[in-house]
């Protein structure tokens, strides 16, 4: 230390490199996550789809096919369950692991808006569930003798329910103090989506119905279930989807805050 003379201080602050902008960064995260999903998540997508198909088969034993509310609920519920499995459960695990293993440091030392990372990842996980949800809905409609005419509604249900569930999953993963707790929360959330989404509403006790109303995927399930009736009430469908969208925005905002919190402790 002795041989050093006092170095002249920087008089003016050096210029800052430009930060990444929201949409291009979101696109980059989305593409990377989709590529990543191709490598490692395809088997899990099969698991998610088979799980839902299994539930359809099981419920076929207790629910009559045809145009009745229980059949609608089972088919809609098991389709949205694919989304819950991937967007909630897997995303909670992913962010939990990222945080536990120091992977978040990588993003935190890049000038990228938190929303890009959270939304890009959530969108990749959600869009990756679309094929599974479509297959489940198609098979379910066939098993329960329901019309296929309005299956296209899934194109709106998956992204909206996906956003809500993915935001919730990401927030669980980012806020959980330990990785195992993140995994646990993801599993619990998915079990809730399974029980509350698939079981016909009429049979549920009052308290459980309240819980059901709090779960963001419920509105996606209801919107989709309505389209199986002979003449769907489109206003109600749009209403449910709007609730889904609002909850989705809120849960993604929560996830973004959680990310900010997790990266700046």
């Amino acid at each position: 230390m002795t041989l050093l003379e006092e170095a002249p201080p920087v008089t003016t602050a050096a210029p800052l490199a430009p930060a990444a902008r929201l949409l291009p960064a979101l696109g980059a995260v989305y593409r990377a996550q989709l590529a990543r999903a191709k490598v490692s998540r395809i088997p899990l997508l099969f698991v998610a789809t088979f799980q839902s198909l299994g539930i359809l088969v099981m419920m076929r034993g207790v629910v009559d096919p045809g145009d009745n509310p229980a059949a609608h609920a089972v088919v809609a519920g098991s389709s949205v369950l694919v989304v819950a499995f991937v967007a909630l459960n897997l995303l909670a695990q992913y962010f939990g692991r990222l945080r536990a293993t120091g992977g978040l440091d990588h993003y935190a030392t890049l000038p990228v808006p938190p929303a890009s990372v959270v939304l890009g990842t959530a969108a990749a996980y959600a869009s990756f569930t679309l094929p599974g949800a479509l297959v489940t809905a198609g098979v379910g409609a066939w098993m329960f003798e329901l019309p296929w005419a309005h299956l296209w509604v899934l194109l709106a249900v998956v992204p909206l329910a996906g956003a809500a569930l993915a935001g919730l999953g990401a927030a669980c993963g980012l806020l959980a103090p330990r990785q195992e707790i993140a995994t646990l929360l993801g599993q619990l959330g998915m079990s809730a989506a399974l029980l509350l989404g698939v079981l016909p509403v009429a049979h549920l006790p009052e308290a459980v119905r309240w819980l059901r109303d709090l779960l963001p995927s419920t509105y996606g399930v209801e919107a989709f279930a309505r389209t199986f009736t002979a003449s769907p009430d489109w206003a109600a469908v749009v209403g449910d989807l709007s609730v889904c969208a609002v909850v989705g925005l809120a849960s993604l905002a929560l996830a973004t805050r959680a990310y900010r919190w997790a990266t700046t402790r």
Binding site: L98, D105, T109
Partner: peptide, 14 residues
């Protein structure tokens, strides 16, 4: 910091 430096962490799982 992210706009001034590039960082290679000791482990990178991201």
């Amino acid at each position: 910091a992210a706009r001034l430096l590039a960082y290679l962490g000791q482990e990178s799982s991201a």
